[in-house]
Write a protein that binds this DNA or RNA. Structure first.
Lengths: 213, 213
DNA sequence: TAGATTGTTAATCGATTAACAATC
DNA sequence: TAGATTGTTAATCGATTAACAATC
């Protein structure tokens, strides 16, 4: 591949293209122009063409894009072709919730282990997984082809456990702790902070209210 | 207030300022310069001053910012002064998970009701809340000062239930369904799509890998 | 007062949009 | 071929950063 510098804006949009193309497939639509897709997605046609062209010329002049093949291309770009194994660190409410939720299994993301350092929780059953001790984590990572480590513990412990994951070869961190994890080179971190999400909602509502007055 | 056009970039950063200032308070630091804060937060000092100035001149030349009073100012801007009541639509894995999680209670966001249209789930106990029927939703909203509605149901039902919320005066939608909700004027929507979050992580990892080769 | 640091404007950078030649 | 629509470059817009006068 020869593409350079993918902006975080494009990183955010790519899964959305994928989702919309999936919906088009479901409704039996076989080809689509950037203009028609732009109406569905509420973005500009120009942006769609610009974004997609960073990865290759997937369209055809006078025709548009073949929905199925573009879907497959984006699937490939996003690395969704194969199974991705996930471990969850923390068997508290959040960790258990993620293990139960599992909506992402349909996209190849599988939670294969859940860990806690509280001996009282070790052995508990969570959606068919037995909670393991964090001391078993290194061996488990080695044996189970783990790609993604989920941080679902308080921030006091978050950094330490993220480092354990990285030290054992896991370089994708899905961080739910309320702290920024700055890991070394080659490690990618995706933060999900539900409290900040609610704060943004509350703030946007306050801005709306102001607008009206 | 006289501030105009707050960009979504600023909306995303504001909760982070709030979090970092909270941490500074916890460590007993009473004042901080934009420069020192910029080092902690890994952003530029210029950006901090620029951002904060959209809301007012909270600093003092030659001194910096008083941590506690800046914290209070941002708290006020974000609308965190009072309690925010939340209802959750959907008592499946995700809805229950959110009700159990409740980390955001510390910031004034309280889940006060959980609803489902499946009669088999109505009456179930979730973290001390009894699951109610969606037919009870309008009355509940009226009686309980509900500000935020959480969509934790499949996308097929999401739009319809979001409209029910809006029709009953809830104009803040916290959307976990895998679909875009385009509600009317004055309604704010915050999307949390965990599957897309994992896709971004996977994609960033693929980009890292490429970089190395 | 002298030193420090903000508030704020101007310069730069990057992302989005517009335009249109290439081409199916 | 004529019409449609992409790929791609150039123009515009907006966000970030730099600079420095104001001022505590």
């Amino acid at each position: 591949m020869k593409h350079k510098k993918i902006s975080s804006a494009v990183i955010h949009r790519l899964p959305k293209y994928y989702r919309h193309l999936g919906e088009l497939i479901d409704t039996g639509i076989q080809r689509i122009s950037s203009r028609d897709l732009s109406i569905r997605m509420r973005v500009t046609a120009s942006q769609i063409r610009h974004d997609l062209n960073q990865f290759g010329g997937f369209g055809q002049q006078g025709y548009g894009y073949n929905v199925k093949s573009l879907y497959k291309e984006i699937e490939n770009i996003l690395g969704l072709g194969n199974k991705h194994n996930i471990v969850v660190i923390g068997a508290g409410n959040l960790g258990r919730a993620l293990a139960h939720y599992q909506d992402f299994k349909a996209r190849g993301f599988h939670i294969v282990g859940i860990f806690d350092n509280n001996p009282d929780l070790v052995g508990d059953d969570v959606s068919g997984l037995k909670v393991m001790s964090v001391s078993d984590l290194p061996a488990f990572i080695k044996d189970n082809d783990v790609e993604i480590g989920t941080i679902a513990i308080p921030k006091s412990e978050a950094k330490k456990m993220a480092q354990v994951l990285v030290d054992n070869g896991v370089n994708q961190i899905w961080n739910f702790a309320h702290t920024d994890l700055h890991m070394g080179d080659g490690v990618v971190v995706e933060n999900v902070n539900l409290t900040e999400s609610l704060m943004r909602l509350s703030f946007m509502a306050a801005l709306e209210l102001e607008k009206k007055q």
